[in-house]
């Protein structure tokens, strides 16, 4: 029999996720200028990490699975950062807002 997680861990994970949802939602009504985007993204990333760690059992799984999970995200960052590098340095997008 494989080891299982205590139910309270899952319940706490879900409560934390719902609290983070409430936070994003609330901040959506506050004018923070361009920080609205940064805070919203930070909360979304926090939620994704919590889901991956506890619901998807990245916490407690093998190094190999950690590697694959991180690799997917790193390639996404390559995709976005290299493309935006082009857009931002060639004057393809106005950066005045």
């Amino acid at each position: 029999m494989e080891k299982v997680t205590q139910p309270k861990v899952y319940v706490r994970t879900c409560v934390a996720l719902l609290a983070l949802l409430a936070l994003t939602w609330a901040i959506g009504y506050v004018d923070l200028g361009s920080f609205n985007l940064i805070v919203a993204l930070a909360v979304a990333i926090a939620k994704a990490i919590v889901i991956a760690l506890f619901f998807m059992h990245i916490k407690g799984s093998s190094r190999l699975l950690h590697l694959v999970a991180v690799a997917g995200v790193i390639w996404l960052l390559f995709l976005i950062s290299l493309t935006l590098g082009d857009y931002f340095t060639r004057g393809w997008v106005p950066l005045n807002h």
Binding site: G28, D31, K47
Partner: peptide, 15 residues
């Protein structure tokens, strides 16, 4: 997780 990103990015662009 995908929806966790879609919600703020689509529904909460500006305050």
């Amino acid at each position: 997780i995908v929806w966790v990103f879609l919600f703020p990015l689509l529904y909460l662009v500006g305050h």
